[in-house]
Nucleic acid binder design. Structure first.
Length: 219
DNA sequence: GCGACAG
DNA sequence: ATCTTGTCGC
């Protein structure tokens, strides 16, 4: 697939994003998704971890190893990681109530980032939590955990810049699918009792790194 | 035309 | 994302 064709796919799928559903207010399980790359970038491992939303302990997980399906192009990021992530999701024995993606949802040049793409393809509620911005402008939120400011782009509010820890660099929260922005914010705060990034992202990050290491050094 | 640009 | 040296802070 070419970059132009990928953009066409995004524009075809974008109308399928559900912007109405408020999403679960008290999800039983929340999934984190992340991908790790080999040093040369020719191999990747995708991981999904499913956490009990109340205890934040891992109750299910799966991995998918493969080749990057696309070059790294900002705005077309999903085409790179989506196949391996879907493989991992297929191997789960649980259906999580919410997907927390490492990257953006509506905070995207065409309002269709990885979290939207994963949400539409799976039909599950999804949100994006990015560590750095892709689009938009914002004012720095106050320094206390829980404080946020709107992320604006082209006249739209596309997400929130959310402080998850006192005095620590904020994260970028946006809706992916079947979730309100307010609920997405609440869920991220529930997932960050101790660290800047959601526990879901942390457990998935650890798992995909381990899986990649095991793939590179079979013993 | 130039710089910026999720992971 | 990963690599890599140096620096700040608990």
């Amino acid at each position: 697939m070419t970059e132009d064709q990928a953009v066409v796919v995004q524009e075809e799928l974008r109308p399928l994003v559900d912007l109405v559903g408020p999403g679960p207010s008290a999800p039983a399980t929340v999934a984190g998704l992340d991908v790790a790359y080999s040093p040369g970038g020719d191999l990747l491992a995708a991981a999904v971890t499913v956490l009990d939303a109340r205890t934040l302990t891992v109750v299910d997980s799966a991995v998918g190893v493969g080749r990057p399906a696309f070059g790294y192009v900002p705005g077309l990021f999903a085409f790179r990681e989506l196949p391996a992530l879907l493989t991992a999701l297929d191997r789960l024995r649980t259906v999580p109530d919410l997907l927390v993606c490492d990257g953006h949802g509506l905070a995207h040049p065409r309002r269709f980032g990885l979290a939207c793409h994963l949400g539409v393809v799976t039909g599950l509620p999804a949100i994006g939590v990015g560590k750095t911005p892709l689009v938009g402008t914002w004012d720095p939120p106050p320094g206390e955990r829980g404080a946020w400011s709107p992320l604006r782009d082209g006249g739209d509010v596309v997400g929130r810049v959310l402080r998850t820890r006192d005095g620590v660099k904020p994260v970028f929260v946006s809706v992916g699918h079947r979730m309100s922005l307010a609920n997405a914010t609440a869920q991220v705060l529930a997932l960050t009792p101790r660290f800047r990034l959601p526990e879901t992202t942390r457990t998935a990050d650890r798992l995909c790194r381990d899986a990649l290491s095991r793939t590179e050094h079979p013993d």
